[in-house]
Amino acid sequence: MNQQDPKTLVKMANQIALNIPDRVNTSQAVGAHLVKYWAPSLIATLQDYVVSHPNEVSEEVRAALTTV
């Protein structure tokens, strides 16, 4: 279910990846952050979008989305 413009979610996720303090296990930290603070529908929307637009999110976000 597309709850909102996925481009907003792309921006938010990329921003999280850029700012999350854990720079070693960044993708795991991003995934944990998404699960903890995002409604599942938003994560699902982003996952769907990234399938067809993989280059719009950072590598860390792409990796994170495979783990959540």
């Binding site: 597309n2 995002w38 409604a39 599942p40 938003l42």
Partner: peptide, 19 residues
């Protein structure tokens, strides 16, 4: 057991007619 929508999410979802 899962988080709900934040205010900006609510706005975006409203425009998408799901909220």
């Amino acid at each position: 057991a899962v988080p709900g929508l934040r205010i900006p999410n609510m706005f975006d979802s409203a425009i998408a007619k799901t909220f």
